[in-house]
Every structure is written in structure tokens, then in C-alpha cells.
């Protein structure tokens, strides 16, 4: 982190010294991190995301307002010294809610990607390594899920959830599951392709010549080489999941009030008066989504450049 900040403030030499001391090995991963550290844009994005997470985590504790404390006398007030981002139609502090919503949205985004990676990576790697019937079945399922248009699917599933009268507290978990269901096929396809091409490489033939066990060939030789791709795809996946969560919640089908999320906070923009006269209600969550997604994508691009699987000599 220190390296990061020094770098941003242009103290290149200091940062390089520090990085030099930190890096004992020239492992491909360490080299990639070093390349990433030289990418100012990606580093700025990473810093922004780190600050955002930190703010969402500890911010609410410093707020004088509880996120669900209503105040009938302070309805729809514009930003002021006491309410930095104003209040909403129940008199709740928008900033506090924004930070609480950040926790939810980021958690949903992150957790759903972890889920879809768990499913997609396993199935993709198995399909690529085993081939045959397993490959056929996994890819058939993935293709099926990918042919379904995702937005209508999300809407239908959200509507079903609403019919089932799931309590709001549990709904966010179901939203994660739904999002990961949509996310895994892309990942599985990419990993399968990567495994297939790695299997043809000379170094995999070498493991056969050396008579290494299947376990070692798989877990020490094959799979570690898919990690760079996985990191990049998963990072980009978080941005996607955050956007999907926002669609759903905006439509009232994802995370529902009183649990705040950036998506459901934006639904105030549905009212013409709020949209025209009270931008403090919908601008902050909108900007939060926008900035977060852009930052994640910039970081993802930076990671892709840094982890370029074509190892430079």
C-alpha cells in the first residue's frame, strides 16, 4: 500500500526501492505485480476501490445518523452541514444510507462472483481436462444458460422471489445466487479454452515424459497457468455483477427496502419531481455505481496487461 501511494505521488525512486526490497523472487506473479504497479491508471483505480471499501466499512460508524433512522421533520432536505448529502423522503441521511448500500452492493457483487467462479472454474477446468461426455454436458448446459436473455430472466426470477414473500434480509443471498447463475457459463467457457490450449503445450507433454502423477500435473502444472485469466475475468465479473444487482434492485426485484442498495436507492429517480428537483436523492448512488464499475474495469485492464500470459523473456 505504501508503495502504491508513493507511486501516485510521483516518488518513483522511493517506491521502486521499496518494491525491490519487497520482491525477493522474480516469479511471474511478482513480475506481473511489478508491472501493475507501474500502471498509474490501474493503481489509481485500485486505490479508489480500496478507499471506497474502507469508507463503506467504517464510514457508518462515524455517522451521527443511523441508516434507518427516520425523521419526519427533516424530509427531502437538500445537502447541508448536518446532512452532507441531504435526506430522503423519510428523513434518512442519504450519505449514511449510501455507505450502507455500498456494503450491500459490493458484497453482492463480490460474493456472486466468488460463487460463479467456484462453479464456472470447476466445471470449465473439468470439461477441458476430461473432455468427452463431461465436456459435452458442461458446455451444453453453459450454452443453454448463455442463450437465455439475461435481463428478462433476472426480472422473472426477481418476480418469483417477490411472490414467494422472502424476507428482505434473506433476499440478498438469493440475489447473489441468481447473479452467479448467470455469470458462470462465460467463465467456464474461457477456462475450458485455456485448459485445452495449455494441454497441447510442450511443458504438459514434458510432465508426461517425466511420469508425474495426475494430481501434480493438474494442480502444479496445468491449473496455476489458468490463474492469470481467472483473476482478470473475475475482476471484470464483479463490475458486471454490481451492474446486474443495480438493474434488479432498481426494478424492485433485487435487494428491497428497507435494506439499502445502490440500485434501489436510485428508484427515487422514478418520480419526476425527485428527478428534477432533488438530484441529491439519485445522483450519489448513480455516481457510486458509475465510478465503481469504471474503476473495476480499469483495474481489470491493468491486470490483463500485467498478467499477459505470453511471458516476456
Amino acid at each position: 500500500m505504501t508503495t502504491l501511494i508513493l507511486r501516485l505521488f510521483g516518488q518513483r525512486r522511493r517506491a521502486e526501492q521499496l518494491a525491490g526490497r519487497l520482491a525477493h523472487a522474480h516469479s511471474p506473479l511478482a513480475e506481473a505485480l511489478r508491472r501493475l504497479a507501474r500502471n498509474r491508471l490501474a493503481m489509481a483505480a485500485a486505490l479508489f476501490l480500496a478507499l471506497l471499501v474502507l469508507l463503506c466499512l467504517i464510514g457508518p460508524y462515524f455517522s451521527p445518523w443511523r441508516n434507518d433512522a427516520t425523521d419526519a421533520l427533516m424530509i427531502n432536505r437538500p445537502p447541508s452541514a448536518s446532512h452532507w448529502l441531504g435526506t430522503d423522503f423519510l428523513g434518512r441521511d442519504v450519505l449514511t444510507r449510501l455507505l450502507m448500500a455500498g456494503r450491500i452492493s459490493l458484497t453482492v457483487g463480490f460474493a456472486s462472483v466468488v460463487l460463479s467462479v467456484a462453479v464456472g472454474y470447476t466445471l470449465g477446468a473439468l470439461a477441458g481436462y476430461l473432455g468427452g461426455v463431461v465436456d459435452l454436458a458442461v458446455m451444453l448446459l453453459a450454452d443453454l444458460l448463455m442463450t437465455l436473455p439475461s435481463l428478462p430472466l433476472l426480472i422473472i426470477m426477481g418476480a418469483v422471489l417477490s411472490e414467494l414473500k422472502v424476507p428482505p434480509d434473506y433476499r440478498i443471498y438469493l440475489v447473489m445466487v441468481i447473479l452467479s447463475l448467470i455469470g458462470w457459463p462465460t467463465l467456464a467457457r474461457l477456462i475450458r479454452g485455456q485448459v485445452l490450449s495449455l494441454r497441447e503445450r510442450d511443458f504438459m507433454l514434458a510432465t508426461e515424459v517425466l511420469g508425474l502423477s495426475t494430481r501434480r500435473r493438474l494442480f502444479r502444472h496445468l491449473l496455476p497457468n489458468t490463474v492469470p485469466l481467472l483473476i482478470v475475468v473475475a475482476t471484470m465479473g464483479v463490475a458486471n455483477a454490481i451492474l446486474n444487482e443495480a438493474y434488479l434492485s432498481y426494478l424492485g426485484l433485487g435487494v428491497v427496502p428497507p435494506t439499502p442498495s445502490w440500485g434501489n436507492m436510485m428508484d427515487t429517480a422514478n418520480s419526476l419531481i425527485d428527478f428534477q428537483r432533488r438530484p441529491w436523492l439519485w445522483m450519489p448512488p448513480g455516481l457510486a455505481i458509475f465510478a465503481t464499475v469504471i474503476a473495476i474495469n480499469l483495474l481489470g485492464d491493468g491486470l490483463r496487461d500485467a498478467l499477459d500470459p505470453k511471458m516476456k523473456p
Partner: peptide, 8 residues
């Protein structure tokens, strides 16, 4: 191509 790039 015959050496795994991730193994010392």
C-alpha cells in the same frame, strides 16, 4: 514452450 513458466 517446454518449460512451465510458473515453476522455478
Amino acid at each position: 514452450g517446454s518449460l512451465n513458466p510458473r515453476i522455478p
